[in-house]
Design a protein around this nucleic acid. Structure first.
Length: 793
RNA sequence: GCCCAGAUGGCGGAAUUGGUAGACGCGUCAGACUCAAAAUCUGGUAUUGGCAACAAUGUGCAGGUUCGAUUCCUGUUCUGGGCACCA
């Protein structure tokens, strides 16, 4: 198959001509002939087409809070209850839209080679896509007709399987559980359901239960117990694994925990103390594989499985399709109407579908979005007078963020999202500045979206961003209050144990607005009024143990908040507003200070200590031009050599720093330069002009003002461009010393027990050094520390 | 639990390819100017010992490679970002 998006009309035409065969391949899914296709009802046809659409409809689980009557994001669920109100949250199946990003998995991997992203970013995306090659194997179940299908990356270890583990969500469990194990299994499944995904993820202790059923090894016929455990996920592979404790760390721990005996198939490579995940051992106790290396066995096992029909080679991706609908008001509405459970797309002429005005943004019934409450949220399909209900879900944030850069190229186009001529002209985004928090969200969606538009011929490039610069996040200091789960009682931080428990009771850790916390002390009255009085009835157990109800106050009873440094975000209530600083120091100072804070790619808490220094620098710069009493003081004299040297040193340094995005060191260089010029009382116009050109990107307002003061008519931005051109034209000759230790080099390093001149004489006299120099005099001799010498040719 | 980063003086950070650790800024101490303050300027400021010259120690922790490690390797702790326990 072509591995690219095509218009759905092509698929329909293909079905009409050849049935369920496309481009000569029998497509996965339902099989039918062209005649059968034509005989189907439109609804049946649409249902089949849905299996192949890039955006399709399916069912998925959401966090449903009955008390709030709404769907919650993972963020809004704490300890299995809603952050607001502390109501129980359960998993609920809802109809959802998805984007078939998994079909792009291979191309998203391949594309990483063409773009300039950091290695860690590429690694994160690669791991997220998670391509693995293995096999699916069917295990017969003793006394049942059903088979247990597992996915494994290590079919070569099949003779080392000591137990099977099935995800608790699998329906097969009901059928295979023996009566004796039934109670234990039901209890375990109930336990898993009560746990949030986050809890299941962070859990260290191993849990599981035996179903009473046995699977049969397809080669040896050995009986293998079938277990259930939450560490196996229903959504990945087949939701069941074959466990090989001698080769897999987690399987090993599971076997130890439940006293399952371990078969050793790798002889001395397994010491009984820890699993050894090697791929290089020679197999033992492995039937027809005995004596083979694991790599050889891999192919042989798969071949044998395929011959006997009990398995096949299989490529798996851990990435799943992207959920594309939200039960919210704010989001792009879908141009979709529903009739008898079938989705129909509106025609182009009916676009755009605009959000309706509403009086209330409250959630709709049964987990539907607010649009479900709107009378008349409906549209007629073209050529029909019948009004049909419009889709009530809206699109998520990434529906817009995935392609906004294209719209920015052609923002006034009423006919297309962006004309091909325009996107051909501008091309890819040259440099994209964004944080690592988007590694596996936005940056992956946007790449997929761009590939789809490219496939359909709307744009001429496949990757949205040529180069990515990961800037660090400015972090905020958050404050937390601790609510005893299921109550409105809040416990002061100091009274909690390490697990944030109070007298054995679990607490929910909730963000509180930093504005109503003084240091760590919560303003109780402000907290009661916060969020429209949601916490009016709150009871506080203060640091000294005093319990305070509404209206009560006891001197000395304070409530202390917990704190954490984390990314600055409205939802964490830890943001700071820069307006005051801009007002006090000006935008140039603020801008330069942010650059001076540290490396762009590093995250750090926001802290205004030191902004004074940058402000002083700009004032000092100003004083190079103006004197309080004398006014303008620059001169038209020719600069001296020393002055030029100071300027050019700064130009070189700032140029290099800017080139490698090291803005903080560039700012340092400005400071050094201005200090030196001040020290020597240098106020030559020719020097100052060049300094301003250099400074423009860092302090544009001041630069522009002083630039005009010097008598220049045009904007300093126009004057800055020739410099950039010159920079690109300049050939930099790299004459750096190279490391020692046998690498190719133009430099030799020797160690001595003596120092300086004496060492130089000895070194140059040494026959080995002379041979190395080939009779030529050394270009440079550098003393490094006092016992080392570098000779450069 | 998994993936990806980061850790250097009192503080933010610098050291561009393995070669004088601490540039630049903040803070602080001392001084100049001032009736005084602000602003500005000058000098000191990693730690320990010493009046000093100087010596020893020092880049989260424990090892390793190297004549030489903030830099490379192995393990580990803590902090941050992401998460879907990925077999």
């Amino acid at each position: 198959l072509k591995q690219k998006a095509e218009p759905i009309e092509l698929l329909i035409a293909s079905f009409e001509k050849e049935g369920s065969v496309v481009h000569g391949y029998r497509i996965p899914g339902k099989t039918f002939t062209a005649e059968e296709w034509k005989a189907m009802t439109e609804q049946d046809q649409l249902q089949i087409l849905m299996e192949y659409r890039l955006a399709y409809c399916g069912y998925g689980e959401v966090n449903w809070c009955e008390a709030l009557g709404t769907v919650l994001a993972n963020d809004e669920v704490v300890n299995g209850v809603s952050e607001r109100g502390g109501h129980p949250v359960i998993k609920k199946k809802l109809r959802q839209w998805y984007l078939r990003i998994t079909e792009y998995a291979d191309r998203l991997l391949g594309g990483l080679n063409q773009i300039d992203f950091s290695e860690s970013m590429k690694e994160m995306q690669t791991n997220w896509i998670g391509k693995s090659i293995g096999a699916e194997i069917d295990f017969s179940l003793k006394g049942h007709n059903e088979k247990l299908r597992v996915y494994t990356t290590r079919p070569d270890t099949i003779f080392g399987v000591d137990f099977m583990v099935v995800a608790p969500e699998l329906t097969l469990i009901e059928q295979i559980t023996t009566p004796e194990q039934s109670v234990a299994v039901q209890e375990y499944i109930a336990y898993v359901k009560s746990r949030s995904e986050r809890e299941r993820m962070a859990e260290k202790k191993i849990t599981g239960v035996f179903t009473g059923a046995y699977a049969l090894n397809p080669f040896s016929g050995r009986e293998i117990p079938v277990w259930i455990s939450e560490y196996v996920l229903a959504g990945y592979g087949t939701g069941a694994i074959m466990a090989v404790p001698c080769g897999d760390e987690r399987d090993f721990k599971f076997a130890k925990q439940f006293n399952i005996s371990i078969t050793n198939i790798i002889g001395g490579a397994f010491d009984g103390e820890a699993a050894n995940p090697t791929r290089d051992a020679v197999l033992q106790e492995s039937g027809f594989l005995n004596g083979l290396s694991m790599r050889e066995a891999m192919d042989l096992v798969v071949k044998k499985l395929e011959e006997t029909g009990s398995g096949n080679r299989k490529v798996n991706y851990k990435m799943r399709d992207a959920a594309f609908s939200r039960q919210r008001y704010w989001g792009e509405p879908f141009p979709i109407v529903w009739e008898s459970g079938t989705a129909y797309a509106l025609s182009d002429t009916q676009l755009p579908v605009n959000l309706p005005y509403v009086d209330s943004y409250g959630p709709g019934p049964e987990g539907e979005g607010p649009l479900a409450n709107i009378q008349g949220w409906e549209a007629a399909l073209q050529g029909s007078g019948n009004l049909l209900p419009l889709e009530t879900n809206t699109m998520p944030g990434y529906a817009g963020s995935s392609w906004y850069f294209l719209r920015y190229m052609d923002p006034h186009n009423e006919q297309e999202f962006c004309s091909k001529t325009v996107s051909d002209y501008w091309g890819q985004v040259d440099l994209y500045v964004g944080g690592t928090e988007h590694a596996v969200g936005h940056l992956l969606y946007s790449r997929m979206w761009t590939k789809a538009l490219y496939d359909l011929g709307f744009i001429g490039f496949e990757e949205p961003f040529k180069k990515l610069l990961n800037q660090g996040m400015i972090q905020g200091s958050s404050r937390f209050v601790y609510r005893i789960t299921g109550t409105q009682t809040f416990v002061s931080k100091g009274l909690l144990n390490k697990e944030d428990e109070y007298e054995g009771k679990q607490t929910d850790k909730l963000h509180v607005d930093v504005q109503i916390v003084d240091g760590y002390e919560l303003d109780l009255e402000a907290f009661r009024k916060w969020r429209n009085g949601e916490y009016v009835e709150a009871v506080f157990i203060c640091e000294n143990g005093t319990s305070l109800k509404a209206g009560e106050a006891v001197s000395g009873a304070v409530y202390l908040c917990g704190s954490e440094v984390e990314k600055m975000s409205k939802s964490k209530f830890n943001t700071v507003n820069p307006d005051d600083l801009v007002h006090k120091y000006g935008a140039d100072t603020f801008r330069m200070y942010e650059m001076f804070l540290g490396p762009v790619e590093l995250s750090k808490p926001w802290d205004t200590k030191g902004i004074e220094g940058v402000h002083r620098f700009l004032k000092k710069l100003w004083r190079l031009f103006y004197d309080e009493t004398k006014g303008a003081i620059w001169t038209n004299e020719e600069p001296t050599e020393q002055e030029l040297r100071i300027l050019h040193k700064a130009i070189k340094k700032i140029d290099e720093d800017t080139e490698r995005f090291s803005f903080n060191t560039a700012v340092s260089s400005f400071m050094i330069c201005v200090n030196e010029l001040s020290d020597m009382n240098s106020r030559k116009k020719k020097i100052l002009e060049q300094l301003l050109v250099l400074l423009t990107p860092y302090a544009p307002h001041i630069s522009e003002e002083l630039w005009h003061a010097l008598g220049n008519q045009e904007s300093i931005l126009d004057a800055t461009f020739p410099l950039f051109e010159a920079k690109f034209l300049a050939e930099t000759s790299k004459n750096y010393p190279v490391a020692v230790n046998g690498k190719t080099r133009s430099e030799l390093t020797l160690a001595f027990d003596i120092s300086s001149e004496e060492a130089e004489k000895l070194a140059l006299a040494d026959p080995a050094v002379q041979k190395w120099l080939e009779g030529k005099p050394p270009k440079k001799v550098i003393f490094v520390r006092n016992k080392m010498i570098n000779i450069v040719v």
